[in-house]
Design a protein around this nucleic acid. Structure first.
Lengths: 225, 225
DNA sequence: TTGAGTTTGTGACTCCGCTCACAAGCTCGT
DNA sequence: ACGAGCTTGTGAGCGGAGTCACAAACTCAA
């Protein structure tokens, strides 16, 4: 089992387990934790927790559970969080600004190292303690400051070009907030967060349940004739 | 085929097709579009586009493609976007503020109708043209103003309680930005957007490729001995 | 009307991920 | 030392989702 690659679905859950473990460790609640408890905290089922953790190796003890500190360390290491990955935000509009001062990033060990834009209105100003620089300085900054993650928070029309500039500068990990499809070479990892798509998905399920309710209602009325 | 339920994965892609179709319709580029073209614009493969669209019904014409306007209408309808779903944001910190003024929502037809918080520092102030109200007024506002989507942008510790209040007020669709696991009854749809989890996933893949590169390097050196 | 060229709709196959269930292995009390 | 009671690790089975490939159905030119 050990040396099989970790499935994507598992990778996506490791940060959740990490958060739960940090909660436990912070409270000094217990030295070990069972898959059952961890599952409850992570909102998944216990078998899934065990299978996920087994991809990292056999770090549990039967009849006892998992050592919290040890597991914390292993997940941290596996996620590559023992080193820091400086990130740059491109696009300092509403969203970019909020991301720049979002405390959740620094709490999880991510450091926003630079901000870029193309508008003279914001270049030179400070946001969250960092100066906003011109996009043309991107490559230099990436090299000099070892930036390894690019966060795109531009309008959709600019997203593809910004992504290409990031890739050209040597960035291999991109998080895209712009509502646009962005293509990158296969050796680059890109993930997208699209806020209005999330709302549209919610809309679908809401609409569906309302449609079902309406149909039931119509049936009821027909039945009573 | 028609009356089978639409798979989750398909639902998640419909908004992407919608965006692509809006682009085409806006440019008045063409009356019809092929699955091939649509696939290119959506960043997926053509067979997937066809299968996805076939769940909505047989709206294409063989040898021709899909009528852009008609398909637009059908997807809009299926996603429930013909009616509007007023949303409330709970938590007017950094993120909540940005979401309140995020133009992407209104562009896609979602209206932020109310803002809530518990801190006296912000209650009464205006954000994005809306007054911030006390969380205790939530239920009343939901009923009076027909709010159907709740957006949680609070610190993680408050997320579960806020979710329960939303559910109690009658909200059945929740979008959670707080980095916390939130449990809701089965008739409530909840989706989460966790920004630092996204970065942690990127970190994993970046770390992995670097680890592979390092291993290769080590091998090379050993081999040259 | 026919045939060449296009494009959809979908059955068949494969792969991935989830869940179940249980043997293996641990602790602890007696 | 042993058995009762937990908890892990994982094989087996199942269902959802992606891809392939091709028949069906359309257009258009001659």
């Amino acid at each position: 089992m050990r040396h099989r690659p970790i499935p994507e679905a598992t990778v996506a859950r490791l940060p959740i387990y990490l958060r739960a473990l940090l909660d436990i460790a912070g409270d000094r609640r217990d030295v070990t934790v069972s898959s059952e408890d961890l599952a409850r905290m992570a909102g998944v089922n216990a078998a899934k927790v065990r299978k996920d953790l087994s991809y990292l190796g056999s770090y549990g003890t039967r009849g006892v559970g998992y050592d919290v500190e040890y597991l914390l360390y292993q997940i941290t290491r596996e996620l590559g969080l023992t080193q820091d990955w400086p990130a740059a935000i491109i696009g300092v509009g509403n969203l970019g600004r909020a991301l720049a001062s979002y405390k959740g990033f620094s709490e999880r060990g991510f450091r926003i190292a630079a901000l870029f834009d193309v508008s003279d209105d914001v270049i030179g100003s400070e946001v969250g303690g960092l100066p906003v620089r011109h996009l043309d300085d991107l490559k230099e900054a990436v090299v000099d400051e070892g930036i390894s993650i690019g966060i795109i928070a531009t309008p959709p029309a600019a997203a593809q070009e910004v992504a290409e500039r990031l890739v050209d500068a040597g960035v291999r990990s991109i998080l895209n907030f712009a509502p646009a499809v962005v293509n990158v070479p296969p050796d680059v990892t890109i993930r997208k967060v699209d806020l209005s798509i999330e709302l549209q998905i919610l809309s679908f399920y809401q609409q569906r349940t309302q449609a079902i309710a309406a149909a039931r209602e119509a049936n009821r009325r027909l039945g009573s004739l």
